[in-house]
Simulated scan of single mutants.
Amino acid sequence: MTEGNFVDYVKMHVTSGNGGKGSSHLHREKYITKGGPDGGDGGRGGHVIMRGNSNLWTLLHLKYKRHFRAGHGLHGSKSRSSGADGIDVYVDVPLGTVVRDTETNEILFEITDEGEEIIVAEGGKGGLGNWHFKTPTNQTPRYSQPGIPLSESEITLELKVLADVGLVGFPNAGKSTLLSVVTSAKPKIADYEFTTLKPNLGIVQYRDFQTFVMADIPGIIEGAAEGKGLGYYFLRHIERNSILLFLIPADAPDIKKQYDILLDELRRYNPEMLDKERIVAISKCDMLDDELKAELKVELDNELPIPYLFISSVAQQGLIELKDKLWAMLNK
């Protein structure tokens, strides 16, 4: 998927259908000139329904279609004939989609399961026909109920990527390079910061034809939780990852300090992120000789509170050990 085709934020207007009105018909046929009430009920207005679809990875299909309108219920008729229900409109969304009220920013619901259906705009109920109102003292009611009007609202869809492993790191730490080496994904790679502007997903092939999904999001900088850099706009994609893989380059001035900054940004965005499994990968380790690596290892053993590995995506070093470790953590 190209970078421009990844859409994870869409606003739309949804409108349900009016309920049909009940009929006030009185029964009439040959030799029956004063029959009783036989007006049928109105049909229900159509719903607008969100439906989870595991074959979708982005909201691209909704980018240029922002209005969804369901059908109106038909009116009741004679012989207690009910009007047809309005046609429901289904909006397929990828798993991990959050639906918010645009005006209040309140989360209405989340779609996380294949085939899950939730009504976002409920159709109006059809009105009752006059035969419902027949009583011993009012045997020919000439009135019926009108249908309940439609409902409409402005909603916002946000996609939170569903992945097993999320890559967390500063810009230019080598996240996209790692993703391109361990998966078949082809993210944009260059030697300047914020090369990645949209999340990228890749499927990691493991032993015995087993797989897991890895996500690369744009780099985080200090102050991202307050909106600096690309801000918190993409931090939500880490919320659904099972494991956070912190990628810190071997030539970083202070590896422990970079890890602390990244962890603090996640904590300020959502403290629940600290409950996830974490591991650090020291990238670009092909720049280190054995002596420097040994010194760095002694230093990290004392400073880092979580497991770490040395890897090099370019030189293909430590990648098998990294996959083994991630797979063990996913299946703990």
Rank of each mutant, 00 (worst) to 15 (best):
G4Q: 14
D8V: 02
V10G: 00
H13K: 11
T15D: 01
N18V: 10
G20R: 08
G22D: 05
S23I: 02
S24E: 11
L26S: 07
L26A: 04
L26V: 10
K30C: 01
I32D: 08
P37Y: 12
P37R: 09
D41R: 01
R44W: 07
G46I: 05
H47S: 06
V48Q: 04
V48I: 15
I49W: 12
M50D: 03
S54D: 14
S54G: 08
L59A: 07
H61P: 03
R66W: 06
H67Y: 13
H67C: 07
R69D: 04
G71N: 10
G71K: 11
L74H: 12
G83A: 07
Y90H: 12
D92Q: 09
V93P: 00
P94L: 01
G96I: 01
N105Q: 15
I107A: 14
L108M: 15
T112H: 08
E114R: 09
E114L: 06
E114P: 01
V120W: 05
A121N: 06
G124D: 06
N130S: 07
N130Y: 12
K134A: 08
T137P: 00
Q139H: 03
P141M: 03
Y143T: 09
Q145G: 12
G147P: 00
P149A: 06
E154Y: 14
I155S: 00
A163L: 11
G166A: 03
F170Y: 15
T183S: 13
K186Y: 03
K188Q: 13
D191Q: 11
K198W: 06
G202R: 04
D208I: 02
T211A: 10
F212H: 04
V213L: 13
M214T: 03
I217L: 13
G219H: 04
G227F: 12
K228G: 00
Y232H: 14
R236D: 04
R236E: 06
E239H: 02
L245K: 06
P249H: 09
A250I: 05
D251S: 08
D251E: 13
D254K: 06
I255H: 04
Q258A: 06
L262E: 08
L262W: 05
D264E: 15
P271Q: 08
E272S: 13
M273F: 10
L274A: 13
L274D: 12
E277R: 13
R278F: 08
I279Y: 10
C285W: 05
C285P: 00
D290T: 09
E295T: 01
N302M: 15
I306R: 03
I306W: 10
Y308V: 02
V314Y: 15
A315M: 13
G318M: 07
G318Y: 09
E321R: 14
E321F: 04
M329G: 00
K332G: 11
